[in-house]
Amino acid sequence: MGYISELREAIGTRPLIMTGATVLVFNKQGQLLLQKRSDSLDWGTIGGALECGESLEEAAARELLEETGLTAGTLKFVSLLSGKDMYYKYPHGDEIYNVTAVYEAIDISGTLEVLDDEGVELDYFDLSKPIKQLNAFSEHVLRKLGLIHTW
């Protein structure tokens, strides 16, 4: 059982401050890799929460590998996002306020594949065009980063 699961057993669905990492992976065409989430069946960014004793960079690398099968030669820091607009309520009711370090994965290796139960599909998307079924929170993050703004 992970750290967050243990906390949830003690406090239920009440809001938590959750620290984590988001990883942006772009292909040669400049498209962003997104994961179709198993809990909401919409498309979201790659990433997740820190485990105890883990650095933000370690969490980013772990989440990238667990969710996509990919490894980054370098993780380039992009931004740190936090605040009341980083609130998210999961479909099952858990509430969080995210503190998220955003990294761009550089020099990617590995085979792109769904490896955990958090996702059901992976695909690259052109950010200049609307993405059907984009997770609202991921859309918020991408807008805050200035990666989408035309639609």
Rank of each mutant, 00 (worst) to 15 (best):
residue 3 Y to E: 08
residue 4 I to W: 09
residue 4 I to Y: 10
residue 4 I to F: 13
residue 5 S to L: 09
residue 6 E to Y: 12
residue 7 L to I: 15
residue 8 R to L: 08
residue 9 E to G: 07
residue 12 G to F: 04
residue 14 R to W: 07
residue 15 P to W: 10
residue 17 I to C: 06
residue 21 A to D: 02
residue 22 T to C: 13
residue 24 L to I: 00
residue 25 V to H: 00
residue 26 F to E: 00
residue 28 K to E: 15
residue 30 G to F: 03
residue 30 G to T: 06
residue 31 Q to P: 00
residue 32 L to H: 02
residue 33 L to P: 00
residue 34 L to T: 00
residue 34 L to P: 00
residue 34 L to A: 01
residue 35 Q to V: 13
residue 36 K to M: 08
residue 36 K to D: 01
residue 38 S to Y: 02
residue 38 S to H: 03
residue 40 S to G: 09
residue 40 S to Q: 05
residue 41 L to A: 08
residue 41 L to H: 13
residue 42 D to N: 10
residue 46 I to C: 07
residue 46 I to F: 10
residue 48 G to P: 11
residue 50 L to Q: 11
residue 50 L to T: 13
residue 50 L to W: 08
residue 52 C to G: 02
residue 53 G to D: 09
residue 57 E to R: 09
residue 59 A to L: 06
residue 60 A to N: 03
residue 61 A to T: 05
residue 62 R to V: 12
residue 65 L to Y: 13
residue 67 E to D: 04
residue 67 E to N: 02
residue 68 T to A: 08
residue 68 T to Q: 08
residue 69 G to D: 09
residue 70 L to E: 11
residue 70 L to C: 10
residue 75 L to C: 09
residue 78 V to E: 11
residue 80 L to T: 12
residue 80 L to G: 07
residue 82 S to T: 07
residue 88 Y to D: 10
residue 89 K to C: 11
residue 90 Y to F: 14
residue 91 P to A: 07
residue 91 P to S: 11
residue 91 P to R: 10
residue 93 G to Q: 10
residue 94 D to Y: 14
residue 97 Y to S: 05
residue 99 V to N: 11
residue 99 V to C: 12
residue 100 T to H: 06
residue 100 T to C: 04
residue 101 A to T: 07
residue 102 V to W: 04
residue 102 V to M: 08
residue 109 S to L: 10
residue 111 T to E: 14
residue 111 T to H: 05
residue 111 T to A: 06
residue 113 E to R: 14
residue 114 V to R: 06
residue 115 L to P: 00
residue 118 E to H: 13
residue 121 E to V: 02
residue 121 E to T: 01
residue 123 D to C: 02
residue 125 F to E: 04
residue 126 D to T: 10
residue 127 L to S: 05
residue 128 S to E: 15
residue 129 K to I: 09
residue 130 P to Q: 08
residue 131 I to R: 06
residue 132 K to L: 15
residue 136 A to W: 07
residue 137 F to Q: 09
residue 137 F to E: 04
residue 138 S to Y: 10
residue 139 E to K: 13
residue 141 V to H: 02
residue 144 K to L: 12
residue 144 K to S: 12
residue 145 L to W: 00
residue 145 L to P: 00
residue 146 G to T: 12
residue 147 L to H: 07
residue 148 I to V: 15
residue 149 H to R: 13
residue 150 T to V: 04
